[in-house]
Amino acid sequence: MNETIQLPYFRTSFYCRDRSSIPVVRKFTRKALIEWECGERAYDVLLCVTELATNALRHGVPSGRGFLVLIYLERTERALRIELHDSGDGEVRAADGWPGMEEGGRGLLLVSALADKWGVAERNPGKIVWCEFNLE
């Protein structure tokens, strides 16, 4: 089931724990970026939302559950925030560097390089992994 709430500068949608959700998350995000005329950093935003959704599927969403994507545009400050809410207890950390990297952590390294801010917040159960982009 994919329910979507649409307010002027706020979008949220729920996705099942399935690999086919990733392109749907990108499409959902792209549509909001187009409607809100946020093309300046669209490629960075789409890459980051893809990485966060992939991490949620691989590490954060227990079997039989899903994850929530929230996108919010603060118009006065032209700041875009992406949040992924999951119910898993996995630890979130970026890899230490590129050379000889082990499996895992590279997606968050990309997010930290492309987004202006990113972080993790607690949720019961689970966590929220978020990133923000300045659009001016």
Results as ranks from 00 to 15, higher is better:
residue 8 P to S: 10
residue 9 Y to E: 12
residue 9 Y to R: 13
residue 9 Y to W: 12
residue 9 Y to D: 10
residue 10 F to C: 01
residue 10 F to K: 08
residue 11 R to H: 12
residue 11 R to W: 14
residue 13 S to W: 01
residue 13 S to Y: 00
residue 15 Y to D: 04
residue 18 D to I: 07
residue 19 R to N: 09
residue 20 S to C: 06
residue 21 S to Y: 08
residue 22 I to N: 00
residue 22 I to L: 14
residue 24 V to D: 15
residue 24 V to H: 08
residue 25 V to Q: 02
residue 25 V to E: 01
residue 26 R to Q: 15
residue 29 T to K: 07
residue 29 T to D: 03
residue 29 T to I: 06
residue 33 L to D: 02
residue 33 L to R: 04
residue 36 W to K: 03
residue 38 C to H: 01
residue 39 G to P: 01
residue 40 E to L: 08
residue 41 R to V: 11
residue 43 Y to K: 12
residue 44 D to T: 01
residue 47 L to I: 13
residue 50 T to P: 01
residue 51 E to N: 01
residue 53 A to Q: 01
residue 55 N to D: 08
residue 56 A to S: 07
residue 58 R to K: 13
residue 61 V to M: 02
residue 63 S to G: 04
residue 63 S to Y: 08
residue 64 G to Y: 00
residue 66 G to P: 04
residue 67 F to L: 09
residue 71 I to G: 03
residue 74 E to N: 15
residue 75 R to H: 08
residue 75 R to F: 04
residue 76 T to V: 11
residue 78 R to L: 14
residue 79 A to P: 00
residue 81 R to H: 10
residue 83 E to D: 11
residue 83 E to Y: 05
residue 84 L to C: 12
residue 84 L to H: 07
residue 85 H to N: 10
residue 89 D to W: 03
residue 89 D to L: 10
residue 90 G to C: 14
residue 91 E to S: 07
residue 92 V to Y: 14
residue 97 G to C: 03
residue 98 W to R: 09
residue 100 G to T: 00
residue 102 E to N: 08
residue 102 E to A: 14
residue 104 G to F: 06
residue 105 G to V: 03
residue 105 G to N: 00
residue 106 R to V: 12
residue 107 G to L: 05
residue 108 L to Y: 10
residue 108 L to V: 02
residue 109 L to M: 13
residue 109 L to G: 02
residue 110 L to S: 05
residue 112 S to R: 15
residue 115 A to P: 10
residue 116 D to F: 09
residue 119 G to S: 07
residue 119 G to W: 06
residue 122 E to P: 11
residue 122 E to G: 15
residue 123 R to H: 11
residue 124 N to L: 07
residue 127 K to S: 14
residue 128 I to N: 02
residue 129 V to S: 06
residue 130 W to D: 01
residue 132 E to K: 12
residue 133 F to Q: 08
residue 134 N to P: 04
residue 134 N to H: 14
